[in-house]
Design a binder for these strands. Structure first.
Lengths: 177, 177
DNA sequence: GTCTATAGGACGATAGAC
DNA sequence: GTCTATCGTCCTATAGAC
């Protein structure tokens, strides 16, 4: 529930009042559980990352947290990206949450600043490993991440006009040519 | 001055108090000039767009507001992108302002929602025209915009590690191949 | 665990003097 | 034009009863 509200307002625009209403609780009632606004934020982020990792591993038929470490031939970067995009296309609200927080957290004082910095490094490392032994693997990984983020923004801005999956497939055809 | 603060906090996290302090005024003193918080936002956005258009036209040696309408052979999409990236690399704070607002404004109720929707359409149209008569020109335009936005995020998150210009050149080599 | 009540600020905006 | 003073609203968080 929190996810939807943060996606609409961002973290700075989020009010605990609204979150509590959405949960059918009063404000102190939910603060008893989550502790504070900051810890609520990181809890939501980590929860979503876990859920996504599970879903992704299932889509690829791999055990969780191992899909990028082994079998470099069977699990390729294009396949992982397709699975990721398919997953994201199903949940626009969560994608918007990450898009908003990804930008907000660029400011050094933001509660999720270090979280997103670590997340970007981790994603780049994983994608680089998946890209294989080709020259410029890290460059390709960065471009893939950038393209996915950018297309998601366009999709979220005009969901009626843009289809995320087909937009990504067209981009992948160019990137992985 | 406002630019820097919005870039750090986003629009929802921005306080008129801070802006007024940054300008050496009191809060009502500056509200007299800008009218309201919402109008301050759009004023900043439109001002930046004008300044960027001027700078871009100068870099390309073209009259303002005509660089995408004519001479499709001399002014190509890669050239415009290089000029844009070079311009953006000089002003990380303004780029962060747009990155934050671009994500925040995805919410339908945001003061800049319609502004960014129109901006995205306009940019896509201009880039599509610049791409020329090739098949899939609009797809290419969308991918170029996505790549620029995504690389900017990575650059803003780790300015010490990522160099925006060289990252873009590597991406352009792949996109325009 | 969930509530009522309330503290203690910060916010955007207005009114009116100078 | 810029100020002081202030209104009314919203916020996060705490204290303490049930």
């Amino acid at each position: 529930m929190t996810t939807k509200l943060i996606a609409e307002r961002g973290f700075w625009g989020l009010s605990m009042q609204d979150v509590a209403d959405g949960c059918g609780l009063t404000v102190p009632g939910m603060l008893h559980h989550v502790g504070s606004k900051d810890s609520l934020l990181v809890a939501v982020l980590e929860y979503r990352d876990e859920e996504d990792a599970k879903s992704l591993a299932q889509k690829l038929g791999m055990p969780v947290n191992q899909f990028w470490a082994e079998e470099p031939a069977r699990i390729t970067l294009p396949k992982v990206c397709s699975a990721l995009v398919a997953r994201n296309a199903e949940q626009p609200e969560i994608v918007r949450l990450f898009a908003v927080l990804e930008a907000e957290s660029l400011a050094p004082g933001h509660p999720a600043h270090t979280y997103f910095k670590a997340r970007q490094r981790r994603t780049l490392d994983q994608f680089t490993a998946l890209a294989g032994e080709v020259a410029g693997a890290r460059e390709l990984a960065a471009q893939v991440v950038a393209m996915m983020d950018g297309l998601q923004i366009q999709w979220l801005r005009e969901p009626e006009t843009v289809d995320l999956v087909s937009a990504w497939e067209a981009a992948a055809a160019r990137l992985f040519a």
